[in-house]
C-alpha cells in the first residue's frame, strides 16, 4: 500500500483513502480512521450475525449471559462483559453499572437525578439508569467533549 503524507501550511487535517478494491487491509485502515468500528459476532434468532459495535445502544449481562441491544435487534454475545470492556475500549463506550456498557453516541437525552445519578434516554426510547459511581466518569467524558481520555 502506497502511503503519501503531505504537509501544507494552514490546511485542515484531512485523510483521503484511495483504493481500487476494498481489501481487508484497506478496510482495517478505514475502520481505524473511523474511530470505532469494531465488528462483533453474536447470535440473533439462532442465526450468527456480524454487526458493527457503533450500532450498539448498550450491552447488558443477565444471568452470566451477555446481550447487545441495537435499535432493532437483541444479539447474544459469547464475550464476557469484562472482555467487551477491553474490546470496546473506545471513547463512546462507557460502563454505566456493574452489568452494563453504554454507547454515548446513542444517547438521545440525559436527565440529572437525585443523589448524582443520571437517567439516559437511548435512541430507541429506553431509559438506562447510570449509578452515581459511573455518572462521574460519564460527566468527565462529556466535559472533554470526546477529545482524549484519562
Amino acid at each position: 500500500m502506497k502511503i503519501t503524507i503531505k504537509q501544507t501550511d494552514g490546511a485542515e487535517a484531512q485523510v483521503v483513502v484511495t483504493y481500487g478494491e476494498l481489501t481487508p487491509e484497506v478496510e482495517k485502515v478505514i475502520d481505524f480512521l473511523k474511530g470505532h468500528s469494531t465488528t462483533l459476532t453474536g447470535k440473533c434468532d439462532d442465526e450468527t450475525v456480524r454487526f458493527n459495535a457503533r450500532d450498539i445502544l448498550y450491552i447488558e449481562t443477565v444471568d452470566d449471559r451477555t446481550f447487545a441491544y441495537t435499535e432493532s435487534k437483541i444479539i447474544k454475545l459469547s464475550h464476557s462483559l469484562a472482555a467487551l470492556t477491553e474490546l470496546l475500549d473506545d471513547i463512546s463506550f462507557i460502563r454505566c453499572s456493574k452489568s452494563m456498557i453504554l454507547n454515548i453516541d446513542k444517547i438521545e437525552r440525559l436527565k440529572s437525578l437525585p443523589s448524582n445519578r443520571i437517567d439516559a434516554t437511548m435512541k430507541g426510547g429506553e431509559h438506562i439508569l447510570i449509578s452515581r459511581t459511573y455518572a462521574s466518569e460519564l460527566r468527565n467524558r462529556l466535559k472533554k467533549g470526546g477529545v482524549g481520555r484519562e
Binding site: 474511530g35 454515548i104 453516541d105 440525559l110 437525578l113 462529556l142 470526546g146 477529545v147
Partner: peptide, 26 residues
Amino acid sequence: KRRIDDKVLNEELEMFQSRPGKEEDT
C-alpha cells in the same frame, strides 16, 4: 439545580456527539 444540570449535560452530550473524527464526518 438538577434542571440546570440537565441543560449542561445535554449541551455537553450534543458537543460530544458532534465531535470531529466521528463516523458521521466520513
